[in-house]
Amino acid sequence: MISIHTRQLLSGLVLPVFVFLAVGIILTGQIWPDRMAQLRMGAVRDVGPVYQALLFPQRQFHKWQLTLQGVGDLLAENARLRKENRKLIYWYGEAQTLKQENTRLKSVLHWGAEGARDYVSGWVVRDETGPYLRAVLLDVGGHHVTVGSLAVDEVGLVGRVSEVGPHVVRVLLIEDAASRIPVTLQNSGGDAMMIGDNTLYPRLMYYNQNIHPEEGEHLVTRAQTAGLTGGIAVGRVHYLAPGQPVVVPDAALEHLDLVRIFDGDFMPEGPVSSGRVREKPPLLPEQHDGNTPSTWQSLRRFLPFTSLQNG
């Protein structure tokens, strides 16, 4: 039988023990942040239907709002759509001509087949945007997504996948202070880094000091062998002050609904070409233990700049 004094002493110890456990959780979260993120993603997956139910009135209201706006401005909207349609028809013709020209030029160069863009679309089930964090959680179902894949909305780059859980992935937005995206300046072809700082406009840094980014210049992601998809629209350059270029993102980051994730390491620049020869000899040393690496393994590090067939 526990005495009253012992019971009082034990009850006085409960709070310090819980505080100690909370400090332990903080330390665990700092040492293994991925595990904590996995736990949170698991919770989001489980309460996904609750979120959908809570969002239903807001989405319905937004739909009705759009419908009412459309009804209220029907004549002007029709005129605008007709004008846009004429423009689209013109650009469709232009695109067809360019496509044919592109096919012809590729056949002249013996250009190999491009890898298919493998992507998955997912609804934003939770917005993790807080004071120091800019991230969203997406429900991608059973589709396999790798860490580092790029996420885009209908217009441009949104961020990169930072954690992958069962059914739910976490996308770190380009605004986040931990975000680092290598980009290419479209006019000059120079490279730079887009660095988030928890503001609406990520900074543009580490560009060639001889080729400064131009105001309004468009940026796309730079293809990398580390699995970064290249050629995705990012945004436009804007100078907040002389010598301080920032990126005005193309994507509507403030209200994300449906986000697409490009899985794999698709790179529009320099795909595998059947007509090209290897630029460098393999760097891997010859193995004399009888386990010679296959041609594929040896050449994998040079992809996509090396032809498999000619290796």
Binding site: F18, A22, I25, I26, G29, P33, A43, E128, G130
Partner: peptide
């Protein structure tokens, strides 16, 4: 904590601090 976006454990720690101070 599962539905928070802050670093794990921080909110729980300060909830306990609030409880302790209030008591």
């Amino acid at each position: 904590e599962l539905f928070s976006v802050n670093p794990p454990g921080v909110l729980l720690f300060w909830m306990l601090v609030a409880y302790g101070v209030a008591h």
